[in-house]
């Protein structure tokens, strides 16, 4: 390698590394930024939530998650610094904004929750039945602490889930079909509520999948849900929507759930993530 190539190679790498990805920005600032870009009743519906964003209880949950992430745990007594979230072992900055993605070691597309389960069982040696892995909901669960921490490191980064691998594209496209798939006692699909801007269910303004500036907030999970007083995940949102649509219970971590999350993340592409978020 000539001395000239030796100098340009790392420079080119660093350019690729930052292009379009963005950098950290506090969630309250990201939200303010998208509010200034588009007129959206969804983004501005709760003045109280906007005021409380800086004191979001999810920030504390993320802090607890950081300690948990670095702690040596499980039968193998190792930290999660050995877990690859797509940008190399232990790299969390901007990693979640590029998920779901295909993982070579698992041979499948994984969302954040599924990847965490994978690392906790394979790397740390937890059994799938261990409460550390099995308990998925609520601010006091390890899962929500870890998810909140990892996701918070993508705040301000633009959603950019990769579609280079054929499985990433296949899952995204199947998720697209699922989004419009009407079924159940009420004939609903995701599009019933998320296909128009400014519409409400009762008093709640709904986000439109086709307006990325609005949709980025919709897919920004984990979020502290004020009505639940708990931090909730993407998987929890998906489960809740199917329940309300009277279509039964989706299996957390199933490829069906990951396909839908692949599609909804793709729909927010290019917009900065708001993490952790605060929702009604």
């Amino acid at each position: 390698m000539s001395s000239k190539a030796w100098f340009t190679f790392p420079l080119a790498l660093s350019l690729v590394g930052t292009a379009g990805a963005g950098s950290y920005q506090a969630p309250e600032d990201v939200l303010q930024g998208v509010i200034e870009k588009v007129e959206s009743d969804y983004l501005t519906q709760s003045e109280q939530n906007l005021m409380m964003m800086a004191d979001n209880p999810a920030n504390w949950v993320a802090e607890e998650g950081k300690a948990l992430f670095l702690e040596k745990r499980g039968p193998e007594n190792v930290s999660l610094e050995g877990c690859d979230f797509g940008k190399g072992p232990g790299v969390v900055d901007g990693a979640y904004a590029e998920m779901p993605r295909y993982f070579e070691d698992a041979g499948k597309v994984m969302d954040l929750e599924t990847r965490l389960v994978h690392c906790m069982t394979t790397l740390q040696g937890f059994s799938a039945d261990d409460p550390a892995v099995k308990e998925r909901h609520g601010s006091s669960s390890d899962m929500m602490r870890l998810q909140s921490y990892i996701a918070s490191k993508s705040s301000g980064y633009k959603w950019n889930p990769p579609l280079d691998h054929p499985l990433e594209k296949a899952m995204r496209d199947a998720g697209n079909v699922m989004f419009y798939r009407r079924a159940g006692s009420l004939d609903f699909s995701c599009d019933t509520c998320h296909g128009e801007t400014g519409k409400r269910i009762r008093a709640s303004v709904l986000p439109n999948m086709k307006v990325p500036e609005e949709w980025t907030k919709a897919v920004s999970w984990p979020a502290y849900r004020v009505g639940h007083q708990e931090v909730r995940s993407s998987q929890h949102r998906v489960r809740g929507c199917y329940w309300q649509m009277r279509q039964g219970q989706i299996v957390a971590g199933s490829d069906a759930s990951i396909a839908l999350i692949s599609f909804w993340t793709d729909a927010a592409r290019g917009q900065p993530a708001i993490l952790p978020d605060m929702k009604r």
Partner: peptide, 19 residues
Amino acid sequence: AEQLADYLIFDARGFKLDV
């Protein structure tokens, strides 16, 4: 995409179908 969506829901049991 349509076949895969159906496969993920039914064959791969993406939902608790027997409830």
